[in-house]
């Protein structure tokens, strides 16, 4: 996190030196600061910083992709003339255990195709998920475990 601060400070320094605080110039300074930090990554120990930043970005990209996909799937489902749905509630055993990670996972699950988080059990072991197609619960559990949960654990541990 302190490296991110250094990154922003370097970008601010670039804006101050070039004398223009427009958004584009600041963004260019930010990119320059990333480049500078990557040059001295062995010395300041910022190797983890870059890989973590990449993982957070890839989590965000996955999220946007899944959001578009889920809205599309809901649209197809709603507009199909005969709705044949098998909804149901599935219990999902959580591997992540921190409040922060559970919150992110529950939010992401709600915004992804066909699933909606309903409740977390009191001991924070089980997440109850409402699925719009619960005919194959094991496949749904596998999708969540291989998709978001793995990405979250990669990004925040």
């Amino acid at each position: 996190m302190s490296l991110f601060l250094v990154n922003v400070l370097l970008a601010l320094a670039w804006s101050a030196v070039t004398g223009s605080f427009t958004f584009l110039n600041f963004a260019f300074g930010f990119v320059l600061a990333i480049f500078a930090l990557s040059l001295i990554r062995e010395q300041v120990g910022s190797v983890g910083y870059f890989s973590r930043a990449w993982r957070v970005i890839s989590l965000f990209l996955l999220f946007v992709y899944e959001l578009v996909l889920s809205a599309w799937r809901v649209a197809v489902l709603v507009l199909s003339p005969r709705m044949e749905i098998k909804p149901g509630i599935i219990a999902y055993p959580l591997k992540v255990d921190r409040d922060f990670e559970i919150t992110i996972l529950a939010n992401l699950i709600t915004l992804t195709p066909g699933t909606l988080s309903v409740d977390v059990s009191d001991d924070r072991r089980i997440l109850y998920v409402h699925a719009i197609d619960a005919s194959d619960p094991d496949a749904t559990r596998r999708d969540i475990a291989d998709g978001f949960e793995r990405k979250i654990m990669e990004a925040f541990r």
Binding site: P87, I89, I90, A91, V118, D119, Y128, A134, P137
Partner: peptide, 12 residues
Amino acid sequence: RLHKSSVRDEMA
């Protein structure tokens, strides 16, 4: 309660 077309309810 869930609609009667629901196939499972592991929260019950």
